[in-house]
């Protein structure tokens, strides 16, 4: 059974995180515990590990994006997973993303800085 990766809760006062870089792209295999992406908060940089061994089925958010914690950011698939089930997980995750609370304004400014290749966008 696949897994939905959430932006982890990393502290009582941290509500927004910024994706610096995805280490894995869609279709790449990943081991449980392997770093999946690198994230910045106002306190520290940290790596988010893959919760299961499998492949990256869908990255829901691109890098250089600021977003709230505790929301879906990727779907991982295990060998033999039903594609229809994974697609349903993607739809549900995107729905949760669309209802995500607003992010801290100051961290949000990072994603509006005048750098074309660093502009934020949500993957479709």
């Amino acid at each position: 059974m696949g897994a939905t990766v959430l932006m982890p809760i990393v502290g009582a006062t941290i509500r927004t995180a910024f994706i610096i870089e995805w280490y894995k792209q869609e279709g790449e295999s990943v081991l449980q515990g392997e770093p999946l992406l690198e994230v910045l908060t106002k306190k520290a940089v940290f790596k988010v590990e893959a919760p299961i061994t499998g492949t990256v089925y869908k990255l829901l958010v691109s890098d250089k994006t600021a977003l709230p914690i505790d929301i879906p950011i990727a779907i991982l698939a295990e060998e033999g997973d039903d594609d229809a089930v994974l697609q349903k997980m993607v739809v549900e995750a995107l729905d949760a993303l669309s209802k995500a609370p607003p992010i801290d304004k100051d961290l949000a400014t990072v994603i509006t800085c005048s750098i074309a290749d660093h502009q934020a966008k949500v993957c479709n």
Binding site: F18, K42, T109, V110, C113, S114, H118
Partner: peptide
């Protein structure tokens, strides 16, 4: 551009 990016984050 990358310096601008780091500078922006430093301000944040």
């Amino acid at each position: 551009e990358k310096f601008n990016y780091f500078g922006e984050i430093a301000r944040v």
